[in-house]
């Protein structure tokens, strides 16, 4: 019985970790990718008056960060419920 519970918790944890990895991938791509490494290449495109790379570095990445944190919070709440570990289920 205890083993199966440990298994469930291991599964819960690995779901959490893989969600985190996906979020960090996007985090990395918008800031270090679009904002720094590929900035010169992206600057050939325009977003209104913004060169695209410059926009990612000074505006876009910050907006994406905000979205990512809320997305993670939202997803984790449903994973918590799925595994019955949310605090209301206490």
């Amino acid at each position: 019985m205890r083993d199966s519970n440990d298994d469930r918790m291991a599964k819960y944890w690995s779901k959490n970790v893989s969600l985190m990895l996906r979020v960090f991938l996007i985090w990395f791509v918008v800031s270090f990718g679009c904002g720094i490494v590929f900035v010169d290449w992206l600057n050939q495109f325009r977003f209104g008056g913004y060169p695209m790379g410059f926009w990612f570095a000074q505006q876009g990445s910050v907006f994406v960060f905000v979205g990512l944190v809320f997305y993670y919070a939202h997803k984790m709440s449903s994973i918590d419920r799925e595994f019955g570990v949310d605090e209301e289920a206490d």
Partner: peptide
């Protein structure tokens, strides 16, 4: 500074 000081919150 913009990316560093906000990205840290993620």
């Amino acid at each position: 500074f913009l990316m560093g000081w906000t990205g840290g919150f993620v």
